[in-house]
Write a protein that binds this DNA or RNA. Structure first.
Lengths: 145, 145
DNA sequence: TCTTGTTAGTTACAAAACAGACTATTATCA
DNA sequence: TGATAATAGTCTGTTTTGTAACTAACAAGA
């Protein structure tokens, strides 16, 4: 029987990452959920459109690595909320060009401020160097494969 | 509409943490899902029982910070799979004492090996010092509040 | 033209998560 | 003691997600 008393669940990186991700998402989640009735995928789409300008659903899929069915549903909700418009592309009529409405832009700007402020409170737990290292490591862990 | 601002979604810690958590959970998830038909909360319960011995549902709730309805359902599934037994406590008849069966223990040991090996491949991306720092930071981020 | 294949996005149905009500048992305290 | 609150755990109805099939538009070769 294989014994491995060195293994500790509390040190298992996927476990720690999940716990940290869940806990650190809570406070921000309260805001976009209570103030704008959004779900996680909705603010992600909103932020992509706010940050990168008009995009198609598939370009958001490629950039955010969220499954296309989630994007599809998030876009539907955002259109219902009048935060986003969609227009069929002339170049390729399969594509829909997504854009923020003025209402969506206002929500984006508001939430972006909230996110930036919240990020600063998270960063304040560590030194600048630690935060930079953490971001780099998280990026490597988030890579495919 | 690309705006000039200092906030970058790609640097937002909750976003990075979620991405890293999702990506780093995938490979291990394949194993406990395909090999044992388990869900995330099921392996978490299994690992708690394997690591700490017999526990009640509420002590797992306290330790793992998973909602009690999730624990309840995970335990039901594990009992159906013959990995776990439950016995009503004599001291407090509201409580149920959960224990791994020999089958459950074997699954735990197998998955623990897989987890340990997988953790080593994640760690191999960084230096020992970086990994230690990462764990410390993730723990602080996972703290309440 | 006629396949055959690819891509954009939606839909349908099952699986799973979430939230709150609920039962049963124990604890507290006037 | 009796009233009230707290705790352990389950159940139920509603959302949300996951998976795969689907429509529609484009593309490329024979």
């Amino acid at each position: 029987m294989v014994e491995n008393d060195d293994f500790d669940l509390q040190n298992f990186l996927p476990y720690l990452l999940n716990r940290a991700a869940e806990e650190s998402s809570l406070a921000f989640q309260q805001v976009y959920k209570n103030k704008y009735g959004m779900l996680r995928n909705e603010w992600r789409v909103l932020f992509h459109l706010g940050a990168f300008g008009e995009m198609t659903a598939s370009s958001i899929v490629a950039r955010a690595r969220i499954h296309k069915t989630k994007i599809s549903r998030a876009v539907q909700k955002l259109v219902e909320k009048r935060f986003v418009t969609r227009e069929r592309s002339e170049d390729d009529r399969r594509q829909e060009i997504l854009r923020l409405t003025p209402l969506g832009l206002a929500a984006y700007r508001d939430l972006r401020e909230v996110a930036a402020a919240y990020d600063r409170t998270l960063e304040a737990k560590f030194t600048k160097e630690e935060v930079a290292l953490l971001r780099g490591m998280l990026r490597r862990l988030a890579e495919r494969g």
